[in-house]
């Protein structure tokens, strides 16, 4: 019995550390990794896996984001402007989910992911020129790229479009349970002219706030499985401490390419899911 317990704990730690690494590198929640692995491989209850995964998202957004913020990679003002749009989007999404066909929705969303992936692979990062309001200029920032050792100054463009994308990202996560970071990162990078490293770390910073509402609702009702969630949190913390170190040594361009690959994998996962072959529902 004890060996089984220990193996199970090791399995949970390993899965959540992996999700912590991937999530913190790419600015994703990691729910799409934690939930299917906990349910399919370790046989946990769906409900328990969701509760634990929300705590994992917050752990990633606390552990890795702390590091990213102190390195000056996170655009805090931009992140905070986009946060309410995501939260309101997820409320609307959850309310709409009842009326929409999840299968069609998931396949349509996968198509968007594949298109964004193609776009990010094919087109290089370009400087955007647009007419900007006073608020947009207030968001301009700079960071020291630890990989090249150079100061990178950047401008923020198309804020309204970014806010709509955040709303849409929230929508997707409300309707499908996934899709916060995978929508926000390309939107920031491609539409708003924000460097890749800033996009992923700002997304990592934001996802914690998005997860808080859901986590609090479950917590207040005693629906977070304490031991599982605690183990997931520790695993994610361990993984999320590695993510920023890997990002430090990765060039922005490479990060963009890897992100595009992650998008394709996610799209395949979601299509399998929609066809009833995945582990999420």
């Amino acid at each position: 019995m004890r060996t089984v317990d220990l193996l199970l704990i090791a399995g949970v730690l390993l899965i959540s550390a992996f999700a912590g690494i991937i999530g913190s590198i790419f600015g994703l929640g990691g729910g799409i990794i934690i939930i299917p692995l906990l349910t399919l491989i370790l046989g946990f209850d769906m409900k328990d896996a969701i509760g634990a995964s929300l705590i994992g998202v917050i752990a990633s957004s606390t552990g890795a984001a702390g590091r990213y913020v102190s390195e000056g990679l996170v655009n805090i003002r931009l992140g905070m402007l986009m946060e309410p749009a995501t939260t309101v989007g997820s409320i609307v999404g959850a309310l709409l989910a009842v009326y929409l066909d999840q299968t069609i929705l998931a396949i349509a969303f996968s198509a968007v992911l594949i298109y964004s992936s193609y776009y990010m692979m094919k087109r290089p990062e370009v400087t955007i020129h647009s007419k900007r309001g006073d608020l947009c200029r207030r968001l301009d920032s700079s960071y020291l790229d630890p990989q090249t050792g150079e100061w990178v100054e950047y401008e923020v463009h198309n804020l309204p479009r970014g806010l709509i994308a955040s709303f849409g990202a929230g929508n997707m996560s409300g309707m499908l349970g996934v899709g916060g970071g995978i929508v926000k990162v390309p939107a920031m990078n491609v539409w708003m002219g924000i460097p890749m490293k800033v996009s992923t770390s700002t997304s990592n910073f934001m996802i914690g706030v998005t997860a808080v509402a859901g986590a609090l609702v479950l917590y207040v009702n005693g629906l977070i499985p304490p031991i599982l969630a605690a183990t997931v949190a520790l695993g994610v913390f361990a993984g999320a401490s590695l993510g920023p170190k890997i990002v430090k040594r990765t060039a922005g361009r490479a990060l963009r390419r890897y992100f595009a690959i992650v998008l394709i994998i996610m799209a395949i996962f979601m299509i399998l899911e929609a066809l009833g072959l995945g582990g999420i529902s």
């Binding site: 752990a59 606390t62 984001a65 702390g66 102190s70 003002r77 920032s141 304490p226 031991i227």
Partner: peptide, 30 residues
């Protein structure tokens, strides 16, 4: 720019305190 660095520093401190405190309490509990 200076105000941004200060914001970064304080927010990073809050996140680090949250992380270490919760790791400590969770580890003691486990």
């Amino acid at each position: 720019m200076k105000s941004q660095r200060r914001l970064d520093r304080y927010i990073s401190i809050v996140l680090h305190i949250g992380m270490y405190l919760s790791i400590l309490v969770i580890a003691i509990g486990l």
